[in-house]
């Protein structure tokens, strides 16, 4: 009898410890791992950009889009995203693809959606919670907020037009070239950000839409939105 009671209590303690450890892993350790990994991806990008030859500057301040870039390589970083609303120092690498393993390393660009600054819809997904909580403050985004991206050659400033829109996970139309619910009626250069809602759940998705406001070469300095 005593052996049984002892074994059962030991099992309970073991299971409890396991649960606590798992919570520590999800809440804390994934963040530590993701921050390290994102820093590594940013370093990769900066190395890559530093090795690029300097190109002749086109007329500064033009909004004409640069030549379409080469197709992005799956699971490799290709841009950095800045959203001043989420914090002045908030910046995350954007990787190609939205597989689970890719989203652990940064934000994920939906393959098959437009490339950065090109005609169509540049759609990006990110974690709201765990893995560094990149989109934790997603609901704070408002129309008029800037989302700035750089691919090492240009600064792309997108401006959010429609604030957090709640939808169902199966609503793939939100990343269409001209998303139906966004209010856009004509083809253009759009941006879509997606994350999960509620914060710790997966029953819905939160979406914001924006349009490309300006494109300028990196040589002409940081865009307005990133200056303090």
């Amino acid at each position: 009898m005593r052996v049984i009671v002892r074994t059962v209590s030991e099992l309970c303690i073991t299971v409890g410890t396991l649960i606590v450890l798992f919570v520590v892993y999800v809440l804390f350790w994934t963040g530590v791992k993701a921050d390290t990994e994102m820093d590594r991806q940013v370093d990769l990008l900066q190395d890559q950009w530093a090795r690029q030859p300097v190109r002749p500057t086109s007329a500064a301040g033009t909004t004409a889009s640069p030549k379409p870039p080469a197709p992005y390589k799956d699971a490799k970083p290709f841009a950095l995203m800045y959203i001043p609303r989420l914090g002045f120092t908030w910046n995350k690498p954007v990787l190609e693809g939205t597989r689970t393993s890719t989203l652990k390393k940064g934000l994920g660009h939906y393959a098959n959606t437009a490339q950065l600054g090109q005609k169509g819809n540049f759609a990006v997904a990110g974690h709201r919670r765990t893995y560094g909580d990149p989109f934790k403050d997603f609901p704070k985004l408002r129309a008029g907020d800037a989302v700035v991206l750089t691919d090492g050659a240009h600064w792309y400033t997108y401006v959010i037009d429609k604030g957090p829109y709640r939808t169902l996970p199966a609503d793939v139309q939100v990343i269409d070239p001209v998303p139906k619910k966004s209010g856009y009626t004509r083809a253009g250069r759009y941006l879509t950000l997606t994350t999960c809602d509620p914060e710790w759940g997966h029953s819905h998705r939160l979406i914001v839409w924006g349009h490309l406001e300006s494109t300028k070469p990196v040589e002409s300095g940081k865009p307005e939105a990133l200056r303090r």
Binding site: Y110, P169, R205
Partner: peptide
């Protein structure tokens, strides 16, 4: 063990088409 178990939880579903 945890990296295997963690994707079974809902925090990873942030995309709209489950790619």
């Amino acid at each position: 063990v945890f990296p295997w178990a963690e994707p079974l939880l809902p925090f990873n579903d942030v995309t709209v088409n489950d790619q």
